[in-house]
């Protein structure tokens, strides 16, 4: 990491400057993470009175448990579905909004404001629209013969949290795709048009390859969002159910730790999720470092 060529002398000043950031980081981030790692290697009794070192036992038990494998698979499906749905629609709307002349500004602001809506609220909004007795969508579905009840039907509950999560993230993806599109030189597209490439060919051969960096960046951020932030969507609506139909990894950590008080198991799950999210963050960071020139 580069610093300035011209700097100030001394060590006391930078120490004071860094103290608040490092103190908060250490106390509330690094220390708890170390504690997670530690309790993942121990087994506590139910009252937290004693513990014994069990090494990787918690992890082995975890993977032997069919529940965990199921939650893992579910999370991958949920994350992929949310990412694909949200990014796909965002790309479509970005390309269209970039292409129209009239009303472009209006479309852009109407598509971006939901960024400010909290994930928990996004969940509650869709929970209400699909409410089995009074939701307008469930009533519309009933009119065409589909019985919607996310309290009982696992697939429908999962679909609901995917829709709400994707909806919330759409604005974010839209803004980044739009910014990516605006960096593509119009002259390039005009030249291709003169050469006789039609709209679809221009999109596939020019726009899409040039959008690859943005797309890649968004895939990583969307996956991290789906792994972590969607806790609020699920907790505020389905509560992980019915049964375990919407119990993603993050939700299971919360439930096992706070409700079932299985500290070692919950900690082991935390460590696995930490590795997953940490890897994604490093990939993203390396990518940013490579693409940004100071």
């Amino acid at each position: 990491m580069r610093g300035k060529r011209v700097t100030f002398p001394g060590m006391a000043v930078p120490a004071i400057l860094l103290a608040p950031q490092l103190a908060v980081t250490f106390v509330f981030f690094v220390w708890p993470a170390i504690q997670s790692l530690r309790s993942a290697l121990f087994r506590q009794d139910a009252f937290g009175m004693s513990e014994e070192f069990v090494f990787l036992d918690n992890f082995i038990k975890l993977f032997a448990e069919p529940d965990y494998g199921q939650a893992f698979g579910l999370t991958l499906f949920f994350a992929l579905a949310t990412t694909v749905l949200s990014m796909g629609l965002a790309l479509l709307f970005a390309v269209l909004a970039d292409g129209v002349v009239k009303g472009a500004a209006i479309y852009k602001s109407l598509l971006t404001w939901p960024y400010a809506v909290a994930p928990a609220i996004a969940g509650v909004l869709w929970w209400f629209l699909f409410n089995p007795t009074i939701g307008i969508f469930s009533r519309a579905l009933a009119a065409i013969g589909i019985d919607w009840n996310h309290h009982l039907n696992s697939g429908q509950a999962l679909a609901l949290v995917i829709i709400a999560s994707a909806w919330k993230q759409l604005s974010y993806n839209f803004l980044f795709f739009l910014a990516g599109l605006q960096t593509i030189p119009k002259s390039l597209l005009e030249a291709a048009a003169l050469d006789g490439a039609d709209g679809f060919v221009r999109f596939r051969k020019i726009v899409l390859p040039l959008l690859m960096p943005t797309t890649f960046f968004l895939i990583v951020t969307n996956l991290v969002y789906a792994f972590c932030d969607t806790f609020a969507v699920i907790h505020a609506t389905t509560g992980g159910g019915p049964g375990t139909a919407t119990t993603t990894l993050i939700f299971k950590i919360y439930r096992d730790g706070f409700e079932s008080l299985d500290l070692g198991g919950s900690a082991a799950q935390s460590v696995i999720l930490m590795l997953l999210v940490g890897t994604l963050t490093i990939i993203q960071f390396r990518y940013i470092e490579r693409n940004i020139h100071y």
Binding site: Q21, L22, T25, F26, F28, F29, V30, W31, P32, A33, Q35, S36, S39, V224, F227, C228, D229, F231, I250, I253, Y254, G257, F258, L263, S266, A267, S270, L273, M274, V277, G278, T281, I282, F285
Partner: peptide, 18 residues
């Protein structure tokens, strides 16, 4: 690197100890 660690450790992955 310590500061960078905050990026890799969102609250969601260290709920209980925090």
């Amino acid at each position: 690197w310590i500061i960078f660690a905050t990026m890799m450790l969102p609250v969601e992955v260290r709920i209980l100890p925090t």
